[in-house]
Design a protein around this nucleic acid. Structure first.
Lengths: 234, 234
DNA sequence: TTAAAAAGTTAGACTAATCTAACTTACAAA
DNA sequence: TTTGTAAGTTAGATTAGTCTAACTTTTTAA
């Protein structure tokens, strides 16, 4: 503002530290680059809800700070420095989410936006204490891994529910969409991270899947939904 | 921001909500107006570490938002709306401090700057849960009262240690200075909020005071220090 | 293979919060 | 009561992050 514009006065922005805005760009680039490696300006603009030129100018800034590598009309890639920064923010976000669910007993579908704010709190001590209080957890309430203090991530070998065969029993390990509406939808179907479910039937004509949830109830999940649910095989 | 200026995108700044900067002005005006009623532009500028014209322009903005009443070359006063806002921020700050000390086991002298960040988190649910988790406390770790959800404050009838008579036994209820150096100084003298102490001797030539602390040790406190320590009489 | 569409960039403007320099008002002391 | 100093204001500039409009490059698909 933060933003951190204003932030100038309020305990962040010392030395080489990025503004809140920069932090959000870096985090978003990281989350978009899990797969293909390079992130496009328009993907970023869409995710951050800003226009293309805004992204172009911010990317130039991040590039001059060596957080990303970038050439005009080409994709954006985080540098090692940028990745480290991203992991630090993601660590804070996920610790915050788990804290909100476990300690403050808030619902897993409502914690994301509070965590979006907490992730920018500048205090290693604060986060290390939360980590300790939670017993050095490996995953957040959405099933996503929590990087440790050194940015190391325990990786799980999850696959999207859409790729599981009929008849298989699997455990929901993560969801690929933080939106409250998506999480509410899953809750309404009686689904939570950590639940074991069985794939009853896969409809080939539209990609939807019938599953049996923890409460033994059968529900249909659309193709869009099953692509966003990650599961561990047994 | 900090921007949340930047904040635009990041969950604060919806509707009539003030920016992080505005919140800081309001909180500061409140804390400066405990006594005389009106706050001067230069007091504010000093406390916020900005120049006079910056304050003038921000005050105009706050005035147009009806948060303060103000006429050029006159003092600044919070409106009822402004007071309500200030109490809400102060509530968050003090709940945050107590949470950091009680739950995260951080030292009372180090929590202030983390709380400065947490106080801007925008989520009533978050703070209400912390309030609940702490058992609806009435005072923060510095002994300052915590406003309740409706902005009501339990008032204590404390007086500065400098005004206590020789021989009296009192309980430290608050300190009038959040600076880490001040809190460290008290810690080094074996003094904490809540401690019972006895006034052994008052030196009239320089206003310093000899006290017996909880551990039965005698220490000297300078005039500047005893003016900033608030105590409850028995 | 080329032309239309999509993606990206440049230029220029805006807002919030800040600053410095110059001016005005208030007030205290002679 | 005047006047010099301190406090406050106005004007104009600056920076971060954003925008729209116009232009350029890349990709796609005919």
């Amino acid at each position: 503002m933060n933003n951190l514009f204003f932030v100038r006065k309020f305990s962040r922005n010392f030395e080489g530290m990025g503004s809140l805005t920069e932090e959000n760009y870096i985090k978003t680039i990281y989350s978009l680059s899990v797969e293909p490696g390079e992130v496009s300006v328009s993907e970023l603009a869409k995710k951050l809800n800003v226009k293309l030129p805004t992204v172009t100018s911010m990317i130039k800034k991040l590039s001059s700070k060596k957080m990303v590598s970038y050439a005009p009309y080409r994709g954006i890639k985080l540098s090692e420095k940028g990745k480290k920064e991203a992991l630090s923010i993601i660590r804070k976000h996920r610790l915050a989410e788990l804290f909100l669910v476990k300690i403050l007993k808030l619902g897993w579908e409502e914690v994301h936006e509070i965590a979006e704010q907490l992730e920018h709190v500048n205090s290693e001590r604060f986060y290390n204490r939360i980590d300790e209080l939670l017993g050095y957890p490996k995953a957040d309430p959405h099933g996503e891994p929590i990087p440790d203090v050194n940015g190391r991530v325990t990786s799980f070998k999850s696959i999207p529910l859409s790729q599981v065969e009929e008849g298989a029993s699997v455990k929901i390990s993560a969801v690929g969409n933080d939106a409250k509406s998506f999480l509410d939808h899953l809750n309404s179907k009686g689904l939570q991270i950590g639940d074991s479910i069985t794939i009853k039937r896969k409809e080939s004509f539209d990609g939807s899947v019938a599953i049996i949830n923890k409460a033994k109830k059968e529900t249909m999940l659309s193709h869009q939904v099953v692509e966003k649910i990650w599961v561990d095989l047994y």
